[in-house]
Design a protein around this nucleic acid. Sequence first.
DNA 1: ATAATATGCAGGTAAATACCTGCATGTCAA
DNA 2: TTGACATGCAGGTATTTACCTGCATATTAT
Lengths: 104, 104
Amino acid sequence: MDTDKVFKALGDPTRRRLLDLLCEQNGQTLGQLCENLEMARQSATQHLEILEAANLVSTVRRGREKLHFINPVPLHEVYERWVRKFERQRLTLLHDLKKELEGE
Amino acid sequence: MDTDKVFKALGDPTRRRLLDLLCEQNGQTLGQLCENLEMARQSATQHLEILEAANLVSTVRRGREKLHFINPVPLHEVYERWVRKFERQRLTLLHDLKKELEGE
DNA sequence: ATAATATGCAGGTAAATACCTGCATGTCAA
DNA sequence: TTGACATGCAGGTATTTACCTGCATATTAT
């Protein structure tokens, strides 16, 4: 997994909106997705390319249409490998802060 | 929580590195953090300001030093409110894909 | 007091990013 | 086959971003 691509992809609100839309209804076409965004089709295409490069979205052609499917695996991997390690800190934060303020 | 600020903050590898450094040792000064980055102090300062604006880092002044503490709460909230909703999709993805390929 | 240290502030530049318009290609339906 | 439709491709621009240099301020130690 390319962690940087995943985080960069998630760093834009339009792309998170696209993932939201696919979460509501998976397998939407480019046109369908565009109806819910306030931007030109080409802009949406670029966002979808970034999501696809991050492996957050997979596509399948059906005739002249392109269907988009969400892939939640990278999200879960990001959580497993990156977010969880910080959760331990929640318990020790106040303790560390107090110690530091006391001059260690 | 400002979701956009959190995601934008996490979208940069230097800022994720800073969070990693704080995870290893909480409460580091700006100078300590800079020793582990290959960039000017002012650049690191800007990154830390972004992390602070996203509430991922809190700071405390001690004399002429500025101590930085990681705050994992926004990360956990991002996970709770945003990542979890996509996990359900993991089970239905293949099913949806198959249905779509068959022409629905 | 003064020198060293830690950080803050004010810009300036180059690259990345997000957006667009215009035209081309491929597919379906009448 | 021809017109309508869905998407692809090639640029162009304006904003944002990441980085820097130079100088200012505040704190500590001698």
